[in-house]
Design a protein around this nucleic acid. Structure first.
Lengths: 121, 121
DNA sequence: GGAAGATAGTACGGCTGACGATATATACCG
DNA sequence: CGGTATATATCGTCAGCCGTACTATCTTCC
């Protein structure tokens, strides 16, 4: 699962939203880092609906215009929760590896100033 | 940055590895969840080398066969660290949203002024 | 000695998913 | 009347990943 898809599911987790609402929610959730383009959003919503992770909650006619609300399904919530744990594991693993970087360079001298005096073997 | 790319950088963080070594390291780091295929690996290594996140450490001729070792550059380590933080933020945001699911599902349809992140401030 | 399998790297074709651009429609402001 | 914001939808393109096939060497087993 890629970042935009993950953030769309995240946005829908709290409450059903229509397309443009998802764009704004993702913008806020990512602190402005991720701005969804329509092509990304509706492509993802279609895909996620097909996969059963998202369902159409209701359709409102607002000022003569259709407004379609999407909702996270139970399967979608489970998938999102699983992905959260996956992300956590990967982040933890990467940090451990980065911490070993000093130790690996010690054989022929340090590459940068050691911040803490420990090197675990 | 996608999962395979992230895990390749993670594998190289601790020490330089040759291609096949990366495949095994990623397998271990992901607890067997991610098995890199050659197409994914060498494509990513070429790309990451072009981007300066990875450099060729050395080339050994082992038993008449070339073995090329790749190393994570300082820029690569910085990129990986940034990605770790990004992952953590996203995981935390998703969990908060999932926690709002119960409350949000209880029959309210206010969708006027407040945007998604604003419900509890 | 020969087959099978692990190790190690390269090449190529196909597919999914993300993205940018664009079209459409309405409301509001000047 | 035109510009901007809201809102949905479609199209074409591209990056990245995957499967597979191919080459080559070494080890293990028969």
């Amino acid at each position: 699962m890629q970042e935009p898809t993950f953030l769309i599911l995240t946005a829908l987790a709290a409450q059903p939203l229509h397309g443009y609402g998802v764009i704004r929610a993702v913008d806020e959730l990512s602190a402005g880092e991720v701005k969804l383009r329509p092509g990304t959003l509706y492509g993802a919503l279609d895909r996620l609906t097909e996969q059963g992770l998202v369902t159409v909650d209701r359709e409102e006619a607002v000022e003569g215009r259709l407004r379609r609300y999407y909702r996270l399904s139970d399967a979608g919530a489970a998938a999102l929760q699983a992905q959260v744990e996956r992300l956590r594991r990967h982040a933890a693993a990467a940090e451990v590896q980065l911490g070993r970087r000093l130790g690996g360079a010690l054989s022929f001298g340090r590459m940068s100033a050691p911040t803490a005096g420990e090197v675990t073997g």
